[in-house]
């Protein structure tokens, strides 16, 4: 049995120690927010927070976790089931088309806004760059992150182009 802490709850799971965290979340714990995209750490659909930092859960052997804390999309909601700020913002901006990448996008954006509610537009883009969206809703995703930053009392700063 391997113990892991997800969204504040400790679980015992009976899996091989090299099983990727993503499989444990989906198959053992029925936390289906994180998606299987490529399984190779290239697309970001499986992004979760590990001690507050965004990681590809498809590349995290569950035995590597030890006491470190995992948070998933589900963990961003309030205990009463109210969705997290980013989820509300993504819905308001209708940022999902097929929706497959959105859980990863929200979780990665969460890591940024927890650290800094006043990032620059460039910082948002650079931060989200590892996560791929193939529908092309990037502009809506960016607007949703801007909206969430404002809802958190901050906002995304547009940095004026400098003189050439």
């Amino acid at each position: 049995m391997i113990a892991l802490t997800v969204n504040g709850e400790t679980h015992q799971v009976d899996v091989d120690p090299d099983t990727p965290l993503l499989y444990v979340l989906r198959n053992e714990l029925a936390l289906n927010g994180a998606k299987f995209g490529c399984g190779l750490g290239q697309c970001g659909a499986c992004t979760v927070l590990l001690d507050g930092k965004p990681v590809y859960s498809c590349l995290v052997p569950v035995a590597a976790l030890r006491t470190r804390k995992v948070r998933t999309l589900e963990g961003l909601a309030s205990p009463d089931g109210t969705p997290g700020v980013l989820s509300i913002a993504f819905e308001a901006e209708q940022a999902a088309q097929c929706g497959y990448c959105i859980a990863g996008m929200i979780v990665r954006a969460q890591a940024l806004l927890e650290r800094n509610t006043r990032p620059t537009a460039d910082e948002v883009r650079a931060h989200l760059a590892p996560n791929l969206c193939r529908c092309g809703t990037h502009m809506r995703i960016l607007r949703a992150v801007h909206r969430a930053a404002e809802m958190m009392g901050g906002g995304v700063r547009a940095v004026a182009e400098r003189e050439p």
Binding site: P17, D18, L40, V60, P61, A63
Partner: peptide, 21 residues
């Protein structure tokens, strides 16, 4: 032995002989 588990879970999907990459 512990690192062998880490390799199997984190690296093998690309670097093990026969992996897609």
């Amino acid at each position: 032995p512990e690192a062998a588990v880490l390799f199997a879970g984190a690296c093998a999907v690309c670097h093990e002989p026969g992996a897609p990459m």
